[in-house]
Design a protein around this nucleic acid. Structure first.
Lengths: 345, 345
DNA sequence: TGAATTTAGTATAGCGATAAACTAGGGTGG
DNA sequence: CCACCCTAGTTTATCGCTATACTAAATTCA
């Protein structure tokens, strides 16, 4: 028994069986009932259902402007594939649902800096795209090669022809640091990535500095930077802090992975969090709630971020209005158990 | 300044400029040089590059059999979107990379049981599909409505017309339990999902029973089942064990989320892992390495799983050969710190 | 009753690309 | 010198669908 080539029912098949033209069937399928008699509508509809007709999206997108396809692009390296952080994943999940609800399809694609992006986007005649997790420089470069409506998450690119959705990272950095200060800490270290790597860290750093300044804390703060966000880089930072900077009583880390790593680093050297070191993270990932101690961190509304991205894109697709610019989302401090209060009650 | 409708360069444009037919250009683009003179090849290639030509995937897939599109389908609920466990996510990342390397595109789609799947698959003329995380009953039902080559991950469906890639779950259950027995435990509880929900748990349970039997441990084992895998269900199981089953010295949990939850449940009641209870999990997620104590668990090679899925699918697509059946992947025990040795040295 | 309008379609063309069949012009062999 | 075969293309048809323009018959209007 052959599996058989996919035998798609086409409009033609229906037309033949109904004894009308393909065009008439097309009108029925698309609900243009004003061109067709009631009885024909019924006949055709019945036959279509019976033959299990499904319209060909490829044929449609060939003739129409719209393909109903939205690309979600993420950075990828040749060897490791796309980078799916817990965080990005949650966002993609929400994006998928929203697009699906609106009748759009999602093309997921990793992009390695080298190959560029234009092929993918243009080839499939995408209606729009969402970029997640790219560096500003990459975005600029990619944007040049195509002109589909575009939403970018977490960009600090100066100005591009796209809609940008990001957190108020600066305020996040401020809130975290301010919280530590309010708990009596004065020597507060910063753990993040090299500023050139992530625009978000640059902003979080600014917020951190602002809080210090506001509290009148001067002098060069202890700053530990790594190239990538990871638990193990956090552990390294934690051990380094304990060994080389005993004066530091608190840390603000720009990612929960860092923060949890730092805590474990301290523990591994016999210290205790928050007794020996207070820690505040950023992102409120799952690990922040289940770490020991539970991590005080900055949280954001992932659902809202994803929803905003999709809404902006779809509005743009439907109304043809141009609305580039930034949408900045609020952040909040979530208090758990990783900060010690140094002020006597 | 209008953003301008996407002005795609087409073969026609190139043809006009080169003074040849569209067909000739098509031949050049597709490397069928035996039909074209060397000089024409050069001219056309140069023009194509200059006009930044990108072939239309939709047009191609309309005329060809192949769309170079592979669907990755996941279960979704109307409200929550697709279910992206840490585990599935890693798999998708690898699948994306492999498909991309081979020149395929990935259509990511959540499927809610109600709506069915045929629309998506047929509409886009997918070359193939990979199902992740569906229940056996859902798979059977979905399979009926289309006949594209299909790879399913983690199915225990009796026999379907698809290629199945799964773990040796039974052996996993056996290894976990056997490890506990070897460390002197005799009263070992089982924490999992209701067997009807996940075929994998049924098998892991069988492996668990087998190990008990082999060790001559009889009597009804303590079995705690929940409806979904989650940390909080684990916590609940942990507290229940400590309060209602003091005789139990060890647990085998069918998921790391359960296991970590159990440990925290024990801790919250003043107990200690592994002193008061030994725990073995399953999956070796990230949390297993960073939990306290680090979790002894069953691990699998995610890369290999994803790679196997893609390989099977692509082989099938290229060779037209039918090769349904199961591919069963090995599992291993990863020893960490959550199991206490009861045997005196 | 004849012209105008409506109803319910049909006919034609084209989206971008490809497969398959066909052809003009140059070279070759006998 | 003519039949024959390459070479380097061209022509035609088609994938499935939709937009646009057209038309025959039925209905309305004055």
């Amino acid at each position: 028994m052959e599996e058989g080539v996919q035998v798609m029912t086409t409009l033609k098949d229906i037309a033949k069986e109904a004894g009308v033209t393909v065009m008439t069937v097309s009108n029925v399928i698309n609900g243009k009932y004003d061109k067709v008699s009631k009885s024909t509508v019924e006949t055709v509809t019945e036959i279509a259902r019976r033959l299990d007709y499904v319209p060909s999206a490829t044929a449609r997108s060939l003739v129409a402007k719209s393909s109903r396809l939205v690309g979600v692009l993420l950075p990828a390296t040749k060897d490791e594939g796309i980078f799916l952080s817990t965080h990005n994943v949650a966002v993609i999940g929400v994006i998928e649902r929203l697009l699906r609800e609106k009748g759009y399809y999602l093309l997921l694609r990793g992009v390695s800096a080298a190959e560029g992006v234009s092929g993918t986007l243009r080839s499939w005649n995408l209606d729009g795209a969402i970029f997640i997790g790219f560096l500003d420089s990459e975005i600029q470069q990619m944007r040049a090669s195509f002109d589909t409506p575009l939403v970018v998450l977490e960009s600090y690119a100066a100005h591009g022809d796209f809609m940008n959705v990001r957190l108020d990272d600066r305020r996040g950095g401020y809130l975290a640091t301010h919280h530590l200060i309010q708990n009596g800490h004065r020597s507060i270290a910063f753990v993040g990535t090299h500023k050139s790597e992530r625009g978000v860290d640059r902003e979080r750093y600014e917020g951190y500095l602002e809080a210090l300044r506001e509290a009148g804390i001067t002098g060069d703060p202890v700053t530990l930077l790594s190239h990538a966000v990871s638990y193990s880089n956090g552990v390294e930072a934690g051990t380094k802090l304990r060994r080389e900077h005993p004066e530091v009583t608190a840390v603000f880390a720009t990612a929960d992975q860092f923060a949890v790593g730092i805590m474990d680093g301290i523990h591994s050297l016999g210290g205790t969090v928050p007794d020996d070191l207070s820690v505040v993270g950023f992102d409120n990932l799952e690990i922040a709630a289940t770490s020991r101690p539970p991590l005080t961190t900055i949280t954001q509304d992932l659902n809202r971020k994803a929803a905003t991205a999709v809404d902006l894109l779809l509005q743009r697709l439907q109304s043809k209005r141009d609305q580039p610019g930034e949408t900045i989302l609020d952040v909040e401090l979530v208090e758990r158990k990783s900060v010690r209060n140094l002020k006597p009650a």
